[in-house]
Design a protein around this nucleic acid. Sequence first.
DNA 1: TGGAATGTTCGGCT
DNA 2: AAGCCGAACATTCC
Length: 262
Amino acid sequence: MPELPEVETVVRSVAAYLTGRRIVSTRFTSRFVTPGSRSKLAERLAGRRIESVKRRGKFIIMALDRGTLTVHLGMTGKLLVEGEAGEHTHGVFTLDDGLLLYHDPRQFGRIEFSEGAPPRVARLGPEPLEISFDEFRTRLRRKAKIKALLLNQAFLAGLGNIYADESLFAAGIHPLTLAGKLTDARAKKLYLAIQGILTHAIELGGSSISDYVNGRGERGWFQMEHRVYGREGQPCANCGRPIRKILVAQRGTHYCPHCQKR
DNA sequence: TGGAATGTTCGGCT
DNA sequence: AAGCCGAACATTCC
């Protein structure tokens, strides 16, 4: 489910509700989502006050009055402030006024507590909506294929498979292009494409391609704007030729062979 | 039935 | 040494 626009949408949908609330008690039931001692985690969270809810890359970061709670939604994670616990609910937070649920069928997501800055967040690259073009240009000077680089969270934090493919299409860049070989003009096109697409996707509440919903259970609409992702064999919006799907960096990669050049 | 799915990490190879 | 590859994690869907 969740790339930068989806995570941003979730954060916006729950921030006001959660900020200032106190965690009364918690219950965790997955040894994958909450690695380590789940009883110790519950102990550390009990009585804590949520000071703020923010996003960094694809992470949801809740600053507590003591420590930090970090949530990554993985592929199928949902953070919900409405609805009830079900078969795949692996985290239940009872608040002084309200409830917070973590739902995740595939259990690729993680809920972690740390005293200071969470280690996984420390390794993230810059935010794509904040990085300057000069820094983006400099960071592109590598041998890796551009699609692989866009998926690398240490390069830029927040892009995933959907928005990497959509950004490359919007910039007219073939996914197998070596990043270091991009001209200044093409790098600029890519930079603007990434920012434009992420911004538009946030405005539309993210992409609901299977079952993504925000914290209030509402779907996003950016899937209507997808030009290549999930459109294998369908006509390119630009030239009418069929969209092709290949494997790059072990991920399905959608592109138009005519409009996207190496 | 096998394969793929919005993600990340790790070990091994070149 | 950077980059690449496959596997692993667990479940659902077609």
